[in-house]
């Protein structure tokens, strides 16, 4: 063991200290919000560091969870996240699989067609007008269909599929299976790691999607959680007027809504983490 120099040890200690501080700074705002959500109205109004809830109470949660809109928003967000993810993964996989067939006539042109969308797009207004023309505005489809496939994920999926040995497919087609059958019964199951990674990225993206919800949804019954939350913050007064929030604990009610809306992410986070490294390995294969 070589003796570590003074400089190196200082660096090590400083590094640990810095990263510990960074972790605290990252955690604090979240903890602040949890504390406020559990505080009484008066406690929430007093400023400063929130290291613990002040005047512990679940009133804010009771008030938030008694609003019917939060449950509707929950339902809508779940529909969009689940159905949107399934569509995304399925059609990203079919596209990637077929584009990987180098011998397919026209495959080069179609690959270019897909790749070009990564560097140029029609923009917000033409896309909005298309969605409107298709009659999708004010439906949850508007949050799922316009982003159903991403060229980036097609590339990620393609590079994973290339690691599957050709013999796997060859032996199956010799047994008389057609490509559709091979895709669904052999390729898809083998792609589980990449599917899990893309599904998690996509699911979180759909759950957090704000802009499309803002643009496409008018009907409050269709609001997803991010849109409802934005509306609650912006129209705090309005919400009080219409009787959605009967208490004056606006600060803690907003905080409780925030916590309620990130509970699902907190719940899947450990699961998500398992796929961190795998997902990024795939990402780096790309370059």
């Amino acid at each position: 063991m070589i003796q570590k120099g003074w400089g190196e040890r200082t660096f090590e200690a400083g590094n640990i200290l810095f990263l510990a501080l960074l972790s605290l700074v990252t955690l604090y705002p979240l903890w602040h919000e949890i504390s406020i959500s559990l505080s009484s109205a008066a406690g929430a109004m007093r400023g400063g560091l929130f290291l613990f809830p002040r005047g512990f109470t679940l009133d804010a949660y009771k008030s938030v969870l008694s609003s019917s809109f939060i449950w509707l928003a929950y339902r809508n967000s779940i529909i969009v996240a689940v159905a949107g993810t399934i569509l995304h993964v399925l059609f990203t996989a079919t596209t990637a699989y077929a584009l990987n067939k180098r011998s397919l006539p026209g495959v080069k042109a179609m690959t270019l067609l897909v790749l070009f969308t990564m560097i140029f797009s029609g923009g917000m207004i033409p896309t909005y007008l298309l969605v409107k023309t298709l009659g999708l505005t004010n439906t949850l489809w508007a949050l799922m269909l316009p982003g159903m496939i991403s060229a980036f994920n097609v590339i990620v999926m393609q590079s994973f599929m290339r690691t599957i040995p050709d013999e796997v497919e060859e032996s199956a087609s010799m047994d008389g299976a057609n490509p559709l059958r091979i895709f669904f019964t052999i390729i898809l199951p083998l792609c589980k790691p990449v599917i899990a990674t893309i599904a998690l990225w996509e699911c979180v993206g759909l759950w957090n999607n704000f802009m499309q919800a803002l643009i496409y949804l008018n009907d409050k019954e269709l609001f997803t959680l991010p849109l409802l939350l934005k509306e609650i913050i912006a129209g705090q007064q309005l919400a009080t007027d219409t009787g959605q929030f009967t208490t004056f604990a606006a600060e803690s009610a907003i905080a409780a809504t925030v916590i309620v809306s990130i509970v699902p992410i907190l719940a899947v986070y450990p699961f998500l983490q398992k796929y961190f490294m795998k997902g990024t390995m795939l990402g780096s294969v790309k370059s």
Binding site: F91, T95, Y97, T117, L130, P146
Partner: peptide, 22 residues
């Protein structure tokens, strides 16, 4: 293979290239 490719190509033309035309 074209059957598998079809939904993807329809998607890209409909939701990416038609807005470019727009």
């Amino acid at each position: 293979y074209y059957v598998l490719l079809l939904p993807g190509i329809i998607y890209f033309i409909l939701f990416k290239y038609i807005p470019m035309g727009g």
